[in-house]
Design a binder for these strands. Structure first.
Lengths: 335, 335
DNA sequence: TTGTACGCGTTATCAG
DNA sequence: CTGATAACGCGTACAA
């Protein structure tokens, strides 16, 4: 019950100083006599004082929080990013406000506007739908932005990308090196940069190996398990010959393996499969899934650090592209 | 650049009324002449006015946000809960502030204190470490609390539980009905209510079928994939005979299957396995994993609704326990 | 029905 | 080095 909020005023009275002084010690301002500082601190302790967040935010026009928009709150990929971002931020006394964009323009726009209305000091966005112009505008309007998996020239230093093209290339190359030539691919939505780049890598690898590109072996899906399953079923139904599939995400690969199995095909004996992202589950699947590892935690870490730098107006390290790495496991064998 | 924040003052000037009136239409107060109301609204639009969140919160001592603490930001289980909670809340104009407790007392306490300092209007907590007393105290201090998977008499209506005991019972019973008698179990941490109840159900089922309880077949783990794997390896190493394992979570079951496979044992031919939770991945695994389905989305929904009711001081529906359901798939066969 | 004026808890700008 | 006191933007009894 004893729920009287103790304010800076009470502390001031108790310590026999002005509110201004209390505020000063609260914010670690220089030029306060040690003796006084001590007295104030003691008063705070005794009263159990805690500053009111809203007052502070209102008075200094800074919220000490940064916004994070992910495509989805569930799932491993963004889960890992959230974990890392949150850890970095809390360590620095910042709070992380999470919103989901769910891949639709309206939702993404609403989420961003919401965070803006909450006056986040910066935002980390993973967005497919917002346009370059919109993003640049937001960034210029006073709330700096860190972009995950986008590449906008004007603010390239604020973009964190993974080398999807090389990843797609290496995944396909890996299949080719194992003797496969009829290689299908199931991609994420083409609105998504990652999906496009991975596909591009796939084409390049084909080309470099003088394998003709066959559109009928390319299916667009949605990065998720059921989507991967459906796409694979469609592929099977179409009746084209293929001995390997490169999936644009592990989740789709998992769905794909199921579809393959249900069609009486065995992985990897009949069809080799490789995924992308390398979710922590892969090595526990059966067969263990080969995949391209994206260092998700690193990305979360980097994004958070950059956001913080932006808030403090510090210069950024130069733009960078995170490397993805081939993880060979059991789902790919030589043909 | 045009970054002048437009305030209620500007709107008032533009509409030729007092600030109070603007505030009234802003908050949908009755007793404002339609004509005026219209004029004010128009002024707001023209100026692109948006109320300052911090001022509002400060003035009315209410933040329009509720806090959600989960055990982990990653993973399907809490992911689904977050998704649902967020959806319900945004629909009602509330924001959801997510924090992770990570299963350690210090962290949980810090997260809760943080949310309190941010003056959330209510909290949804999934906590193992905080004591009943602490929770009750928080609840009485003005920030109502909804508890996921706890059972505290004094605030039972604010507790959302799933029927773990019955779930554990039915899972075990299912194994027994398939002819298994040497049934091992890998549980979650015993600090966790769910884990304890599931184990209790397991024991009860054994008892009802006159199968002696053998402590050497019971291993405590941590709900996660690697934990399940290690526990299973330990079980194998101990050399006790068993033909089935009941895992306290799907993730542990997945790790378990891998350990089993690596030991040359096949699931379900050599060992039957059943999990708990029924993560959306289960039906895509091979073999498809039998499990006890917890309706996670329902839980998130319920929790959010209850939190909202508490904020509005509405009466709550009576306490409820969500049912879990057996999902028979491929990982259990008759011995 | 509308306006006045004060309060919310801090920070920031001046004097002193 | 410290203390008044005016912002910060909005809500709300109280008057009118």
């Amino acid at each position: 019950m004893s729920n009287k909020k103790v304010t800076i005023r009470d502390v001031a009275a108790r310590a026999g100083v002005s509110r201004a002084t209390v505020s000063r010690v609260l914010n670690d301002f220089p030029g306060v006599k040690p003796a006084l500082r001590e007295r104030v601190n003691q008063a705070m302790d005794e009263l159990g004082f805690a500053p009111n967040y809203f007052s502070q935010a209102l008075a200094k026009g800074r919220s000490n929080s940064i916004g994070l928009m992910v495509r989805s709150l569930g799932g491993y990929f963004f889960g890992s990013i959230m974990v890392e971002v949150e850890e970095v931020l809390t360590k620095k006394g910042f709070h992380c406000m999470v919103c989901s964009g769910s891949g639709k323009y309206e939702a993404e726009r609403a989420a961003v506007d919401f965070m803006l209305s909450r006056q986040v000091d910066a935002m980390i966005l993973s967005t497919d739908c917002l346009s370059d112009e919109e993003l640049i505008k937001i960034n210029q309007s006073g709330t700096p932005v860190v972009l995950i998996s986008r590449d906008i020239e004007e603010i390239r230093d604020q973009c964190i990308r993974f080398d999807d093209a090389t990843g797609g290339y290496n995944a396909t190359q890996h299949l080719i090196e194992n003797g496969h030539r009829d290689i299908a691919t199931v991609t994420g939505p083409m609105t998504n940069r990652d999906a496009r780049s991975r596909l591009q890598g796939y084409r390049k690898a084909l080309e470099d190996n003088d394998i003709p590109y066959r559109p009928e072996l390319v299916l667009e899906s949605n990065f998720q398990v059921p989507g991967g399953k459906q796409a694979t079923e469609k592929l099977l139904a179409a009746g084209h010959k293929f001995s390997a599939v490169f999936y644009g995400s592990d989740e789709m690969a998992i769905g794909g393996v199921q579809a393959l199995n249900q069609a009486g095909l065995s992985v990897p004996d009949d069809v080799s499969v490789i995924g992308f992202e390398d979710v922590p589950l892969n090595e526990f699947l059966k067969p263990q899934m080969s995949s391209m590892r994206i260092p998700v935690s690193d990305i979360g870490h980097l994004a958070a650090m950059r956001a913080l730098s932006l808030v403090d107006q510090e210069p950024l390290d130069s733009a960078l592209e995170v490397q993805v790495e081939l993880m060979e496991r059991e789902s790919v064998i030589a043909t």
